[in-house]
């Protein structure tokens, strides 16, 4: 007999002060408080973090991999958005 599912949460951890929270994995828990506890036990057993965020997985809207070209292709065709596109005379030095 399969049990009723527990909610799924995504776990984000800030490893050091000054760094952004990064996705670490997911966890099942009935509520946010339990999710924080479970995230701490699962993802920070060796001092990996200073701060944890938990977010219900269902609250995340993700882009469709099928739209990858439409969304991101244009970035690749605009080299003038990168500093290396522009030439600066050597005499000017580092810029």
């Amino acid at each position: 007999m399969t049990e009723a599912p527990m909610r799924l949460w995504e776990v984000f951890i800030r490893s050091r002060n000054g760094l952004a929270h990064q996705h670490a994995g997911s966890i099942h828990a009935a509520d946010a408080e339990m999710a924080l506890q479970a995230a701490r036990d699962t993802y920070t057993r060796r001092g990996e973090g200073l701060s944890i965020w938990v977010v219900p997985s269902a609250a995340i809207t993700a882009s469709d991999p099928g739209d990858k070209d439409a969304l991101f292709e244009s970035g690749a065709s605009k080299p003038y958005r990168h500093p290396t596109f522009y030439t600066v005379p050597d005499e000017v030095g580092h810029m």
């Binding site: 399969t2 049990e3 599912p5 527990m6 994995g25 699962t42 057993r45």
Partner: peptide, 26 residues
């Protein structure tokens, strides 16, 4: 405790393929 954590990381990875935790435990 690590082994338990490793089991949980792996269940979570399997769940991304569309199977539920409850089903796997079952």
């Amino acid at each position: 405790q690590d082994e338990c954590g490793h089991g949980v990381y792996l269940y979570a990875a399997a769940e991304t393929l569309g199977v539920s935790r409850e089903e796997l435990v079952d």
